[in-house]
Amino acid sequence: MMEEESNQIIFILFSGAFLAALMATFVVSMVILHRQRQVQNKQKMDQIKAEYEKTILNIENEIQQDTLKHIGRELHDNIGQLLSLSKLYLASSKPEKQSEGKQLINQIISEVRGLSKTLNLDWVESISLEEFISQQLDKIKSTGFCEVELQKEGENWALDKDQKLVLIRVIQECLNNAIKHASPSFIRISMTEQDGKRKIQIMDDGKGFDTSLSSQGSGMTNLRKRMETIGGHFEINSSPGQGTDIILSLPI
C-alpha cells in the first residue's frame, strides 16, 4: 500500500516536473520569439531610415541640379548681358554713360548676391511653403503660359526642413509635368487643413491622362513614394480631356 502511494507520488512529481518544464519552455519560446521580432523590427526600421535618408539626399541633389541650371541660365542670359552692357558703358567717354555703367555694376552685384544665396539649401529653411508655391506660380504666370491661382486657408504651416524639401520637390515636379505634358490654360493650387491633415491640391484643366497606364504612372509612383517617406499621401485623379487633380496630404 505504502509502495503504491510512493509510486503515485513519484509519478505525480515527474508529471509536475514535466509540466513545469513544458511551461518554462513555452515562456522561454515566447521571449525568444519576442526578441526575434524586436531584431526584425530594428532591421526594418534601419531599412526605412536608410531609404528615407536616400530619398532626402536625392531630392537635395535634384534641387541643387535645378539650381545650378538656373544659375547657368542667369549667368548667361542676365548677368552676362549686364556685364557686357556695363563694359560698353564704362568704356564710353560720356560721363552719363559711365554713371549708368556704375549703376549696372551695382545691379550685377545684387543679382550675384541673390544667386549665391540659392547655391546651398539654406533658402529652404528661410522660405515658407506658401511663399515657394507663390513664387513658382508667379514664374509660370510671368511666362504667359497659363493663368494661375493660389488659395490658402489659415496661418503659415510649420514644417520641418525634410518635409518642406520633399513637398517643394513634389510640387515642382507636378507643376513641371503640367507644363510639359498637359498644356493647361489654368492651374490652381489650394492649401487647406481639415480632419487633422494638411492638404495641397494641384489642379489643372489640361489634357489629362489615363492613370492606369504604367508608362504614365512610373513618375507618379516615385512621387507617391516620396510623399510616403515623410508620412504623407499622394492621390491623383485624371482622365483624358478632363484635366488632372493631385492631392498631397500630410498629417498635422
Partner: peptide, 25 residues
Amino acid sequence: YYIEINPLTYLPFWYITIIMFHSVI
C-alpha cells in the same frame, strides 16, 4: 506596443507567467 519592451523587465510578464504556471500546475 510590446516591440520596444524587454519582457524580462516588464512586471505584468512575470505575474502573468506565474498565474499561468499556477493555473496549469
